[in-house]
């Protein structure tokens, strides 16, 4: 069967593909699309070096705690971190009483049920609760943000191209659209300027970002460890914190990885010598 039909069907259908492609090539119009403003003005993230980078990277717990403070005092007004439980904060160096206090004093309470009436109610958070959203639901969140939706930040450094450097650049990247010049010295075209309630930020894909600049003044938070809270420092710290929220097992992964790779290198070397030994003197 195959011997009979194979050589017939395949070429006919396949040559059809080739013909369709050649016709597509011939009939296409080759005007190049005009470059968009997003194309001309969009910037790639600035480099950001964190202690957790690289094969042996570890978290800088001091920095994560500072980053948590920025998240708590600034970002949590709009962003949830629903995959992070308060108890997880003990992993970045908070003591159990500190964790309890953080949960209890959290600005938003968590949903619950009134034990007497069964009506929906709220209560103070416990260490076992996850970091709640400041808004009751998506509609409320959009209503408070000019119809934009602040995304949950738990996974944000893994859910965006560019990761932590992107978040850092975004937070420090707001510019005045009227005076901004790109690398070629060009000013922003009028139709690319942000409309009301949008903010020009060349690190954001379409340049017009609905998040108002959250970090605006040095000293916006006061760090307990004495680090100077410059805007750039706060942005770095919160980016480092968001690396941890996205990948809390990173240190464990690096440590296990080093051990596994060392083990495999030794095992592979031994396997190589046993292979050479078995084949010794035999040409192949």
């Amino acid at each position: 069967m195959l011997r009979l039909f194979g050589p017939l069907i395949a070429p006919i259908v396949g040559l059809g593909f080739i013909a369709a492609l050649i016709l597509a090539i011939i009939t296409a119009s080759y005007e190049s699309e005009p470059a968009t403003a997003a194309h001309e003005f969009h910037l790639h993230p600035k480099p950001l070096h964190l202690a957790s980078d690289g094969m042996l990277g570890k978290f800088d717990r001091q920095q994560l705690q500072r980053g948590f403070q920025v998240y708590k005092e600034v970002c949590s007004a709009c962003h949830s971190a629903r995959l992070v439980a308060f108890r997880d904060l003990s992993e970045i160096g908070f003591t159990v009483p500190e964790v309890k206090a953080i949960a209890k004093n959290w600005a938003t309470e968590v949903p619950s049920v009134n034990p007497e009436t069964g009506e929906p109610a709220t209560r103070k958070a416990l260490p076992s609760d996850y970091i709640p959203s400041p808004y009751a639901n998506e509609t409320a969140a959009r209503a408070a943000n000019n119809n934009a939706l602040p995304p949950d930040l738990s996974l944000i450094t893994k859910a965006r191209e560019g990761g932590a450097p992107y978040v850092h650049s975004l937070l420090t990247g707001y510019r005045d659209p009227n005076t901004y010049r790109n690398e070629k010295g060009e000013a922003l075209p009028a139709d690319a300027k942000p409309s009301a309630n949008l903010h020009f930020n060349p690190y954001y894909a379409n340049l017009n970002f609905a998040m108002p600049p959250p970090l605006v003044a040095d000293g916006q938070v006061s760090y307990a460890d004495g680090t100077k809270a410059s805007v750039d420092q706060m942005a770095q710290d919160v980016s480092a914190f968001l690396v941890w929220t996205a990948e809390p097992k990173l240190e464990n992964r690096h440590r296990t990885g080093v051990a596994v790779v060392i083990f495999l290198l030794i095992a592979t070397t031994l396997a190589y010598f046993s292979y050479q030994n078995i084949w010794a003197g035999r040409k192949h």
């Binding site: 990885g257 790779v261 495999l264 592979t268 396997a271 190589y272 046993s274 292979y275 030994n277 084949w279």
Partner: peptide, 15 residues
């Protein structure tokens, strides 16, 4: 023996 060595290289790259 040869596959054992190959497997070692593969697992190392995978790891």
């Amino acid at each position: 023996a040869k596959d054992g060595f190959g497997l070692g290289v593969f697992l190392t790259l995978f790891a």
